[in-house]
Design a protein around this nucleic acid. Structure first.
Lengths: 256, 256
DNA sequence: TGTGAATGAATGTTTTTGAATGAAAAACGT
DNA sequence: ACGTTTTTCATTCAAAAACATTCATTCACA
């Protein structure tokens, strides 16, 4: 990413949040702390933001009283396997695609990486959480409307299905709850399964993201047959992935 | 390929993307880095683009610095007044309503309070940020789908309008950018104004939330006449609120 | 064949970056 | 309140990336 592009994103984030830590910026934009520090010092020199200990804030803001709506994300269980799967998934992109991003933590690991893709893809998602994060990173995003399921922050239901039915995707990345040789891809929730099915039907190519623990599991509602999708997973000795090779396509992250 | 033809393509790409790296241009047009460098230097000399380290960008407008940001800056001021306004707004609820919550920081101050209302209301919003927070607080929420405006994290456009058109609200809370005795409620963005108008039209009772700095200001796009809404604001000596009393309804927070 | 523009590669220089270090500041525990 | 621990900061250094410059080759056209 180019310097001015990165600094524009920093400015946009500050405008939206009023105040943001150097640490968070650094993690969102995937650069070192040193580089982020230099960027912020430069922006402060130009008089665009105010430098404070630990981060930056808007010039006009009064430091005395902070609202700090910090209820947001804490689930930064940065499991290396999720990160690895996300990297493999991103590698399927060329840039500029119209893609669907399913709700869930595994697909969520793709978000910061999506902010790096050029040209920026158009991301459609049913997760309000993902949508908010992507917008913060200045990634063009369309959110599927409807009732938000409180357990997953994802929209489901008729309104969502209707809106989805009018769209078509180059690529979709679906989170998986359970993968089985005969049952295929399944998930516990009936409504979420319906959304996932619809997405797959409207995608030129559908990828299912799953860590090793999801294999040889079955859940209630059918999402897809193995033949319909490509599964992106991690290298894993426990699961006998070879038997899946015959029924579906597999992308396995590097053992690095 | 002829030189001018190649340079036209470069210009078209920059026009479309706003900013592009020398590496990407070089790969797209299948020439050496040296040649691409020469092209870009020439275009920069002619004043057609701005040369930056690693690539080129449009020279005209800075992507993030839009006119409305100036007004958005003001909303970052006066945190306690926002809290006071939010409290007054919540006091209008009885519990169990179907309500609309507009995007913006002032309406955002209502979020934690909404988590306390019993029975829980159904909250409809066009802000993916608000939707995410409300879902975290287990408040039933419906999000309006559509393209997310990156500067405000709110959905706008045709899809959003369509979906809104099918809903009706007991109460709506709208954020205001500018309030004027003769111009009424206005806002800088045309698309957001359209959404706000639609919401007001579908609400039994519409409230506009505004701190003192919003009064006697005018912006580009009309949202509503003063007669259509009730304004919730703060006690404020500077603004002559009395003159507004005759044109609209006012709810003013306690001086506590 | 000669000429000049355009190109790609090679060269050394400048800018950008990430890591390392110790100093300063904030947060913490008692 | 006080000393300790953690975090943030400024500075420095080396590696990587981007840069300007030079030079030899190619190609169109006289």
């Amino acid at each position: 990413m180019m310097i001015s592009e990165r600094q524009d994103k920093i400015l946009a984030l500050i405008q939206k949040r009023g105040r943001i830590s150097i640490r968070e910026l650094q993690e969102l934009l995937l650069v070192s702390v040193s580089t982020m520090r230099r960027d912020l010092d430069k922006l402060a020199d130009e008089g665009l933001v105010k430098r404070i200990h630990g981060g930056v804030e808007l010039l006009s803001q009064h430091p005395t009283l902070q609202p700090e709506i910090a209820i947001a994300d804490k689930t930064k269980l940065n499991q290396p396997s999720k990160q690895q799967i996300a990297l493999t998934a991103i590698a399927q992109l060329q840039g500029g695609e119209t893609l669907y991003l399913d709700a869930g933590t595994t697909t969520g690991a793709m978000i910061t990486l999506l902010g790096q893709v050029t040209p920026a893809p158009l991301v459609v998602t049913n997760s309000v959480h993902h949508a908010s994060q992507l917008a913060d990173l200045m990634v063009p995003v369309v959110v599927i409307g409807g009732q938000v399921k409180l357990s997953t922050n994802a929209t489901v239901g008729m309104t969502a299905a209707e809106q989805l039915g009018q769209l078509a995707f180059d690529v979709s990345f679906i989170g998986a709850d359970a993968i089985d040789l005969t049952a295929g891809i399944t998930t516990p929730d009936l409504e979420e399964a319906a959304i996932k099915r619809l997405v797959i039907a409207h995608s030129r190519h559908a990828f299912v993201l799953a860590d090793a623990s999801k294999f040889n599991q079955r859940a209630f509602a059918k999402v897809a047959d193995l033949e319909e999708v490509t599964i992106i997973t991690e290298p894993n000795s426990a699961t006998e992935l070879a038997s899946y090779q015959t029924k579906t396509q597999l992308k396995i992250g590097d053992q690095s």
